[in-house]
Write a protein that binds this DNA or RNA. Sequence first.
RNA 1: GGAGGUGUAGCUCAGUUGGUUUAGAGCAUCUGCCUUACAAGCAGAGGGUCCGCGGUUCGAAUCCGUGCACCUCCACCA
Length: 874
Amino acid sequence: MTDIQKQFNSTEAEKKWYQHWMDKGYFNSQPDDRPAYSIVMPPPNVTGVLHMGHALNNTVQDILIRRAKSLGYNTCWVPGTDHASIATEAKVVELLQEKGIDKNNLSREDFLEHAWEWKEKYGNIILEQLKKLGCSLDWNRTNFTLDDHYYDAVIRTFVDLYNKGYIYKAARMTNWDPVALTALSDEEVYYKETQSKLYYVSYKIAESKESITIATVRPETILGDTAICVHPEDERYKHLIGKKAIVPIVNREVPIIADDYIDLEFGTGALKVTPAHDINDYNLGEKHNLEVINVLNDNGTINELFPEYEGKDRMEVRKIIVKDIEAIGQLEKVEDYTNQVGLSERTHAVVEPKISMQWWCKMEDLAKPALEVVENDTIQFFPSKFKNLYRHWMENIQDWCISRQLRWGHRIPAWYDTEGNIYVGETKEEAFVKYQEKNSSASIDDLKQDEDVLDTWFSSWLWPIEVFQKDVTSSDKDLAYYYPTQTLVTAPEIIFFWVARMIIAGMEYKNTIPFKDVYFTGIVRDKEGKKMSKSLGNSPDLLQLIEEHGADAVRFSVLIASPAGNDILYDEAFLEQGKQFNHKMWNAMRLVKMWEEKQEERALNDIESFAIEWMKAKLEDAKEKTQNHFNHYQLSEALKLIYSLIWDDFCSWYLEWMKPGKEETIATAAYQESIKIFDELLLLLHPFMPFITEEIHHNLLDNEEDLMLKQLSKNENLNKEILEQGKKLQNIITAIREAKQKNQMKPRDVIQLYYISKDVSFYEKTKALLKNQIFADKVEACTEAIDNAITLVIQADKLFMQSDIEIDYSVQIEKLKGELTHLEKFLFGINKKLSNERFLANAKKEVVDLEYKKQADTEAKITSIKESLARMEN
RNA sequence: GGAGGUGUAGCUCAGUUGGUUUAGAGCAUCUGCCUUACAAGCAGAGGGUCCGCGGUUCGAAUCCGUGCACCUCCACCA
């Protein structure tokens, strides 16, 4: 006892146990004859720092892994990081700028050298931080999406899909990020409501005095107008269709065309068409065969076609052009207007729709099997509502723009000859072979590789496959053993970016699913419901939280607030609860350890045997319920259940029952059973709070076995009878405590208890326990009501509490009257039901029988209370 | 504009195919206790128009319709 600290030292325990688990190699996995349970961690960006979202996500995964371990699975949780092409490149560019270096003045090789330098220095910080949370990751399997084997796999995939005809190169409208100078996929653009202006500009009609007015929010795109479009049925403009309009400033003659795409109600009902800079205009242009005039440079400035504006940013030109149009009297009016403006997810720059030559991947056919496996629940989504979302997206899937005008990433394995013909191959030599087939006198030096790299997600979608075939020697065995993985734990935001595409890749390349279950965690929000993010500054510093409160408390706090599939409202008050839970368990351990010196070799007494039997049943019951929660990924429910099992059932009831008094002893068997039970509770809790449970486990038992490796025992038959008896006992104890308090008695005032019950054996069995808990010097059966006593009605039993202390019956009378009123109302309801023929005819027999039982019970209780009242009021 | 979700105690949430004695927890609140593990505790209590309205049913927090409020995703009308 003396060597046990009064308080749990989380910092010390975390350091000690994590190191111990590492040293013992508990996190590492190799295929064996046990069933596998594998999870691939969603690789965080190398630029990332640990935030609350990661804490939730990784705690969930660690819980699943540790739980599976305790159930006998060979668990493998694979860590790693994602090269995150745009985010990392932006970061490196920024750092170079601080040093006064312009990316464009660096060769590709030099730039990549800087990028790798940065990656080596900072890229693994986030993984190191996960260790502080207690994550049981197999660090020997750490992967990075630009590792050599991974790089090769990505290239192979590209070539394969190209050869199968899925990948092609085409000029298309893309979302252009003028800051990162790259195309973006639709998924990388987000829309933000913005206060804009709607400019009404009149265009003169050629060879006519008429004019036509259009409305636009982007007047700078007037420079690229190649048509005016109206609705074919629009009476206002019908007569102008087929005529020419003159674009102001540039004085270009453009046709006036008709299309029912036009909304008659919006603006003036006439639309200026700029196929180069608007997706809808682009589609109109395709349909009507319009000229495409590109106005912008890649960096968002106006290009050389318009010398007077050349080199100025589009936003600046917007203002200048408005003035210029006003000067020539063709600006009719300006209105305030709220619209959605597309922004780049990475650089937050205003995205410009722009036509550019990009690589694309056809998705329609690839998506079909991936939709199928989710539809038929081969892959299960938790919560299942995301199935709808998934279906909706997969059924409307668009081709995927996979090229990015960046350097940090997997370089597209395509080479061009001097005439611009494309040769795709895994290596330049392979491409050259194809080149030679076409041109026998070709020189390999004529071939130039494509400058672009692939979208990050084009590598991420191979993650669950590629992490298990790291090197050729182990590949088949590992992949066959660990793939498909068990559960993917991720955020719903990346269901399209990543989840859908991993399923596609799995079906295409392994002809099977990459994971069996997908568990979507909620978004972590602050108390006010705002999403926690670095930019809002409302996300607490996780490492600091761990330092201050301990990793177990942090894990507790995010889990307890995290119902399956809902967003979590994070409140730091939960940390307090977690810490108090630590404290509670620590003290329970101290109590139990104290009993070591109070042991006596003897048979169990009545109290001990009842308590042990009851607690074991409680434990069995909880084990079953916990498994049920795990099956549905209701982790917060599981945690709440275990929390209450430990705090309420074990500490508040069991230990109090078991606790020997000052001069008393505890049977050795009871002491040992208590330790065994406690240890089982710790094992149940361990996945949620690994450090304190391991620490207490070792304090409790002197053996060398670690809790982390301990196996949960198989469920035994549940003793329902003892649970019922325990419940009744608790009801009696609570009722007496309440009665004492209501009657101004002290909790420890001595009483005598008499009972009228059909189940005398129950009282015989629990007599000692009752006496002990309610401070009764007598618990005896009686045949009729006792005078000068407080009456309590517990289920079908009547109890009479007597005391030497003067009792004011009025309080008890009031309580009984209240109860009576309620019971009468209740009985009325039952009687109404039972006198309803249609109820008797339609309801199931069990339900009807139950009503009869309720009726009988209630009537008995009412009689009983009436008798008591009559007696007490005398 | 399209789709999905949510609404239960002051707050965060359970509530399993409609029926189980007063709709449950935790936190917060109030009351009483320094009880030899723990005052970071113990014991007890109060607190609800299950969002509104309508329907189905013998019976609805639960199923259906509708309205309101909030949230998310998709689309992007210049």
